[in-house]
């Protein structure tokens, strides 16, 4: 896999910590491999929305990569719940093109960004850099008017 200049947390220069949420083990491993090539650290994984919420509380990651269609609780709802509890949560939705409406909904509920499946490392890298560049205050008001 391609090598990327590591993305670090701007506040302390530490590796970015990720929570990867997807019901497919393969997809999780694939994403984990990618974020590790960005110099990141997988702090936690979840296979459904409910676990995602508890994992978020447990590991407080810098970035959540969130699938949309999952059993028990879908990505949008999980994203919404996480952002409600943690307004600074950086959630990147990961989804296929067909789910455009769902992505719009997730963005309205506080997700920061989205990447399209199949995820390309160089795209995800750019997205991560963009999302990490954000000052914490970013999308706080975003949901309101949407």
């Amino acid at each position: 896999m391609e090598q990327f200049a590591p993305v670090k947390r701007s506040e302390d220069g530490q590796p970015v910590r990720y929570l990867i949420v997807d019901d497919s083990v393969f997809a999780r491993k694939n994403l984990a491999r990618m974020v590790e090539s960005f110099g990141g650290q997988v702090a936690g994984e979840a296979g459904d929305g409910i676990t995602a919420i508890s994992e978020y509380d447990r590991v407080t990651p810098d970035i959540v990569l969130m699938d949309i269609t999952m059993p028990q609780m879908e990505g949008i709802e999980a994203a919404e719940k996480i952002v409600r509890e943690h307004p600074n949560a950086r959630i990147v939705m990961v989804s296929s093109v067909g789910y455009q409406e769902n992505i719009v909904a997730a963005l309205q509920r506080g997700a920061r960004h989205f990447v399209q499946k199949p995820v390309k490392p160089e795209v995800l890298y750019e997205v991560i850099k963009y999302v990490m560049r954000d000052d914490g205050a970013a999308a706080r008001s975003a949901g309101a008017g949407a």
């Binding site: 719009v104 963005l107 309101a144």
Partner: peptide, 9 residues
Amino acid sequence: QMIKVALSA
């Protein structure tokens, strides 16, 4: 939507 969210910030 993404652009709107970004600018709303």
